[in-house]
């Protein structure tokens, strides 16, 4: 028994780490479901990266934005580092940035909607790494809401 514990102890951080990563996987799925719900709620809201809504004349316009900072989690950082050996798409990061972009966009839309706007024109996205060596990415999205 004592031997088993002596062998198991060095592996505890790994187990702990995998357990937290597993929670992360669950949370990611939950977040994606939440995004689907919120996107359904704002369905029909017009987003354009043109500078006006064709065929309409807006009465007023105002800058609106949304941002989010996402950490990819160390497990994905590790699997991504393995991926760079052979190259190819990094699915783990792709999913994180996709969530971040949808979240930032939703925050912007939800704010614009609460202000009585019906569309956002000239939408721009800005993505940046703010974690230095850590894979923390910020997605910032902005545009002009029109009424």
């Amino acid at each position: 028994m004592g031997n088993v514990i002596a062998i198991a102890v060095p592996f505890l951080p790994v187990v702990f780490y995998l357990l937290l990563s597993l929670i992360g996987v669950g949370l990611e799925r939950k977040h994606e479901q939440q995004l689907d719900r919120r996107e359904a709620q704002v369905a029909g809201f017009l987003l354009l990266d043109l500078d006006h809504v064709p065929g309409t004349i807006a009465q007023s316009g105002e800058l609106v934005s949304g941002n989010v900072v996402m950490g990819t989690g160390y497990l994905k950082q590790f699997t991504a580092s393995l991926r760079t050996i052979v190259g190819g798409e990094v699915k783990g990061y792709q999913r994180v940035l996709d969530r971040a972009r949808r979240e930032a966009q939703l925050r912007m839309i939800e704010h614009a909607k609460s202000q009585g706007a019906h569309a956002i024109v000239n939408v721009r996205f800005d993505t940046s790494n703010i974690g230095g060596v850590k894979p923390f990415s910020e997605v910032f999205c902005y545009g002009t809401m029109v009424r």
Binding site: Y17, L20, S21, I23, G24, L27, E28, H31, N67, V68, V69, M70, G71, T72, G73, Y74, L75, K76, V96, E103, I130, G131, K134, F136, E138
Partner: peptide, 15 residues
Amino acid sequence: AGLKNLVGGELTGYT
């Protein structure tokens, strides 16, 4: 944020 990154997801403080 480093601790939160064990799980991954949004880092509210940074946002």
